[in-house]
Write a protein that binds this DNA or RNA. Structure first.
Lengths: 101, 101
DNA sequence: GCTGTTTACGACGACCGTAATCATT
DNA sequence: AATGATTACGGTCGTCGTAAACAGC
């Protein structure tokens, strides 16, 4: 499982629409479809009920959608915190060159 | 930021030793070094103090190490939960073929 | 017939492993 | 000199986009 998968699935779960979700995620519909299919395969569980025209979450999909948002929020929060710490600690900066001059 | 990065960083933070961490992660040292470097670049913050022979966490790295473990635990828990739900809901299985027969 | 998802296919890029280099003890 | 991390480089796999096929309203 990768964060990319969770981002895509969260976007799809929010809209329940492949086209719109793909557009919001800045990818094409086939790429999203493939990624979701791969996620389902890896999880060994069907996450969506696709009746070709109707997209709805299965119980497992609902759970994953909920968890995905929490996880993605935690990741974003951590990233913000780490950047803040680095910013307040010049010695921990990315390219803090004390330099001889 | 990807989970792969977090897994690698968590493993490295646990041992503070590239060779041992890489071995435990089933990759080579250069691959780990590259992944960590990439993570630092993307985060815009130095996560480790590498004095060539001595590896120690920066404040930002310490924070990320802590967050990474929490996030990875949440991911693992979610995966378990989703699989359990799918297992208890045959209709949500991966290849549950009701079949005409 | 049209909207919307899936499948097929080719190209680009990322990740990993091997080999060589450099630094520290 | 030996250990350990980095850099360079080539191969391979994954991911994405375009094009075509399929299904429901």
């Amino acid at each position: 499982m990768e964060l990319r998968q969770l981002r895509y699935f969260a976007g799809l779960a929010a809209t329940l629409h492949f086209s719109r979700a793909a557009h919001q995620l800045h990818i094409t519909q086939p790429a999203l479809s493939q990624a979701i299919r791969q996620l389902e395969s890896q999880m060994g569980a069907r996450l969506l009920d696709r009746t070709t025209r109707q997209v709805s979450l299965t119980p497992a999909g609902l759970r994953l959608a909920h968890d995905a948002e929490r996880i993605l929020a935690a990741v974003a929060a951590s990233e913000t915190a780490v950047r803040a710490i680095a910013a307040s600690c010049p010695a921990a900066g990315p390219a803090t060159r004390p330099g001889p001059e």
